[in-house]
Every structure is written in structure tokens, then in C-alpha cells.
């Protein structure tokens, strides 16, 4: 039962990644693209955790934590660049 649920959730997040990719490619505004990238990072975190459950190891939590931190910092850096034209003033 858990395997079926894992497959279902992985399929959902894979489809979600594809939708985000569409928004990154055709998003009319730059803010849409940043938002889609941010969502993509969150979906990748979910997929990493799902893969960790599938494999039964706890290693992937570290990877998910690192991806979460890098994703947040990159979103803030990109937005700051749009807002101020500079990242560190």
C-alpha cells in the first residue's frame, strides 16, 4: 500500500515539475519565472524525501535540507536583483 501511495505522490510531483517548467518557459513576467523556480525547488524537496522513503535511508534528508536552503537564498537573491539592481549593497 505504501509503495502505491509513493508512486502516486511521485507521479503527482513529477507532473507538477512539468507544469512549473511550462511556466518558466512561457511565463509572461520575470516574477512568474522566479515563482515557478521557487515552486520547482519545493517540488524537488518533496521528490527527494519521497525517494528517501522509497530507498529507506535517511541520507536524502540532508540533501533536501541543502536544496531548501539554496533554493531560498537563490529566490531572495534573484528578487533583490530585480528590486535593487544589486544583490549585496
Amino acid at each position: 500500500m505504501i509503495e502505491a501511495a509513493l508512486l502516486f505522490a511521485s507521479g503527482c510531483y513529477g507532473l507538477a515539475l512539468l507544469l512549473n517548467l511550462w511556466r518558466i518557459s512561457f511565463g509572461p513576467d520575470l516574477a512568474d519565472r522566479i515563482l515557478a523556480l521557487d515552486t520547482m525547488v519545493i517540488n524537488v524537496i518533496a521528490i527527494l524525501v519521497l525517494y528517501g522513503i522509497w530507498k529507506g535511508t535517511a541520507i536524502y534528508f540532508e540533501a533536501a535540507m541543502l536544496v531548501a536552503m539554496v533554493g531560498f537564498v537563490s529566490t531572495v537573491a534573484y528578487c533583490r536583483f530585480l528590486l535593487r539592481g544589486d544583490i549585496i549593497e
Partner: peptide, 24 residues
């Protein structure tokens, strides 16, 4: 416990998909 895990996995998958579908 197995039922709880599967239920939260299915619900979270639906939520994640709905979030990205809304983005589209």
C-alpha cells in the same frame, strides 16, 4: 500506521499537484 502514511502521501501529492496546477 501504514494507512496513515499512505493517506498523508496521497493527500500531499494532490496538494502539490494542485499548487503547481494553480501556478499554470
Amino acid at each position: 500506521i501504514e494507512l496513515l502514511i499512505s493517506f498523508s502521501l496521497v493527500v500531499s501529492g494532490i496538494f502539490g499537484f494542485v499548487g503547481s496546477f494553480g501556478l499554470l
